[in-house]
Computed example of a mutant assay.
Amino acid sequence: MKNKIPLILVLGLVVINLLSNSCKKEDNSNIPHLLVSGTWQLASLQVSNYVGDQRISLDTLNDSCTLTQTFTFNANNTCTYTNFACQGQTTTGSWTLAANKLYFASDMVCKDTVPGGKGALRDTVPFSNAQIVTLGTYSMVLQTGNVQPNYSPTSRRRIVRYGFIRQKAITTQ
């Protein structure tokens, strides 16, 4: 009986531990906090064209742009992009994260450098379905375009990859 008391005590502690750890946990994702933690400045923009999984071209865009392009996410789920496609414009919209926190969508409409009808710049929704490739304290990489995981081996796909760096917030004293 003397040897059974420590065994019963250990089993009791194991049961209590299992019951306390089986409760549903809160969503502790830090992705929304990282998105809204500052202004993101565009550092690189690449366009890859694929046939199936074979990349047939890689183009770097905006390498001669002198305008600073920034993307800002706000805690109230609004966002602002300034100077999209190296055009002097400020565009606002709203954003939402997917349940898996790997994609976000924005309804922001920007003017693109590709001419539309009658010589006007065409409207585009560049982040209507954006995949978050990397997101950290100081950098963020987004992919847009045909980013679905399943595709046919002969389908043509275009993926635009945006690389951002977080800008330090300027505080006034």
Rank of each mutant, 00 (worst) to 15 (best):
S22W: 11
L35C: 04
N74Y: 00
N129M: 04
N17P: 14
A85K: 07
W95A: 07
N77F: 15
G119L: 11
K24T: 11
N3T: 02
S44E: 09
T134F: 09
A98L: 12
V141C: 09
I165Y: 15
Y162C: 15
T91A: 13
H33G: 05
T92R: 05
T171P: 04
S94C: 03
T60C: 09
T39G: 14
G38S: 02
P115L: 12
N83Y: 14
T96M: 03
T113D: 13
A105Q: 05
A99Q: 05
L97E: 08
L35F: 01
T80A: 15
L9F: 04
I31P: 05
T92E: 00
K2F: 02
K2W: 00
P6W: 05
K24S: 09
S37Q: 12
Y50R: 01
Y103N: 01
P115A: 10
S152W: 14
V147H: 13
T172K: 15
P149L: 06
I31D: 09
R55V: 14
V109G: 02
A98D: 13
N62Q: 11
D59R: 08
T90Q: 11
S57L: 03
R55P: 01
V109H: 12
S22A: 06
K2S: 05
C23L: 03
P115V: 01
I5F: 05
G116L: 04
T134P: 09
Q54S: 09
F127Y: 04
I56E: 03
I31G: 04
W40I: 13
S57N: 12
V47P: 10
T68E: 08
T137Q: 11
T72V: 14
L121V: 10
A105H: 12
V14H: 00
T144D: 13
S139G: 09
T144R: 10
T172W: 15
T124C: 07
A98S: 12
S29Y: 00
K118C: 13
Y50M: 00
R158C: 06
N17T: 11
S22D: 03
K25W: 08
